[in-house]
Amino acid sequence: MKLSDLITPVALIDVKRMQQNIDRMQSQTNRLGVAFRPHVKTSKCVEVTQAQVQAGARGITVSTLKEAEQFFDAGVHDILYAVGIAGNKLPQAAALLSKGCDLKILTDSVPSAQAIVDFANAKGLVFKVLIEIDTDDHRSGIKPDAASLLNVAKVLADGGMAIHGVMTHAGSSYDLNTPESLANMAEQERSGCVHAAERLRAAGFACPVVSVGSTPTALAARSLDGVTEVRAGVYVFFDLVMHNVGVCDIEDIALSVLTTVIGHQEEKGWAIVDAGWMAMSRDRGTQKQTTDYGYGQVCDESGNALKGYVISGANQEHGIISRAGEPDLDIVKRFPVGTQLRVLPNHACATGAQFPEYQALAATGAVTTWSRFYGW
């Protein structure tokens, strides 16, 4: 297929850009001397993940057990489910273990750890468990110095579980936008997680894995002493939020939505396209950043950004393209009905989730369909 053959809107992957992003992250983690375990929740796509593995990734990270099932069926065995486990999901996790999946699960509390132990002991299983560490007050996890860290470890160890290690995610790095602040956050993430591991080891618990990561901190880290693996996800496509954070150029963004101009409001300087929030998602992550891209940055059909033109408004199936500042009263001539455009997303994970498949655009111009996973 060619782009002109596609019924818009579609999620479009620029394969050349994607591969450059994969190579960049793999080179960074190789330089820092750590294993790289990509977070595949961004793409939820076998072909994308295969490219990451071929570049040198060791195992994957998932955000749902459905992803774990799908990727295991596709031949990936080393999987970290990086969301705190709830008791009702343990049978699903156990089923993966029984099939031979090398699944690791996550906890950050005594009740959760006890639920893991009780279920596993009743079933005659041993789970590999990582303890989540909170290094930035962003979300979940145990503070590196908290007494509960050792309490959780004791419950797991006394219950016969394998304490596989500790992991953290510096999600607050998304709020930063300078090289120095990102490097400082990367060091905060590293040192906090390493400290938690050292406390566990000093108390007599095994802690072979020290896992850290977010796309900004992975790219900004200057040293990862004491860390064994890095996780990052959105880097594979990048997006406008990451551009505002400062870790990629507009030209690095590999995911876009191909859309078609379907009408105009000439006196307002609007072009109407068939990509509304059902295609772009409602994520307005750039709204609180230095540059607000509305629902997405508009590009020409070849992927070249058209400065100042964004999707400034969106309904379910309609997007409004306008120019920042003075309205473009030549909008009808600039973007005639039928014009195909690409729109770069605020948040690649959210935009990708709107589509059941991607259209992978090769450098030759050929387009191939790649399926995408859904569900929990």
Rank of each mutant, 00 (worst) to 15 (best):
G165M: 09
L344W: 12
E251D: 15
A113I: 04
Q26C: 04
A220N: 10
T168H: 13
V367W: 08
R372T: 00
T49S: 01
G276L: 07
A146I: 08
A271T: 05
N30S: 15
G100L: 05
C248Q: 07
D102H: 13
E180H: 12
L156W: 07
A35H: 11
N184C: 09
A324D: 15
I142G: 15
Y295E: 02
E69A: 00
K16Q: 15
D23V: 02
A51N: 06
Q52M: 13
L106M: 14
G141W: 07
A314N: 03
T215P: 02
T260G: 00
R139L: 03
I311L: 14
G308R: 12
A94F: 02
A206R: 07
V261Q: 05
A206C: 08
G294F: 08
Y358P: 01
T215C: 04
I133T: 09
G171S: 08
D300N: 14
V166C: 07
A279W: 10
Q265K: 11
I133V: 14
C349E: 03
A197S: 10
H138M: 10
L344M: 14
N30T: 15
P38L: 07
A271E: 01
A348K: 02
V230W: 02
G124H: 09
L329G: 08
A57H: 07
Q54S: 15
H347Q: 04
D137L: 13
V212M: 03
S172G: 11
P91S: 03
Q19E: 15
N21H: 09
G75E: 06
L306A: 05
H195Q: 14
A74L: 04
N88R: 11
V155W: 12
A362N: 11
T49D: 03
G204C: 09
G160Y: 12
V126K: 14
K99D: 02
R31K: 13
L12Y: 03
D137R: 15
G33A: 00
G213W: 13
V337R: 11
S109A: 02
G246T: 05
A122N: 13
E357K: 13
H264L: 12
H164S: 14
A206W: 05
R372S: 00
P336I: 06
W376R: 00
K307N: 15
L255Q: 04
K16R: 13
K123G: 00
S109W: 01
F238Y: 14
H195P: 00
V126L: 06
N177C: 11
F373W: 01
A157E: 13
V34A: 06
I163A: 10
V166I: 06
Y235N: 00
A186K: 12
A11Y: 01
V343T: 03
K288R: 15
G338Y: 10
L106A: 11
M278S: 10
V48F: 03
S322E: 15
G308D: 09
V117I: 10
A279K: 09
A279H: 03
M242S: 11
F238W: 02
A254Y: 10
E189H: 13
R231D: 00
Q359L: 08
E132M: 03
V46Y: 07
G303I: 06
S371H: 06
V48H: 05
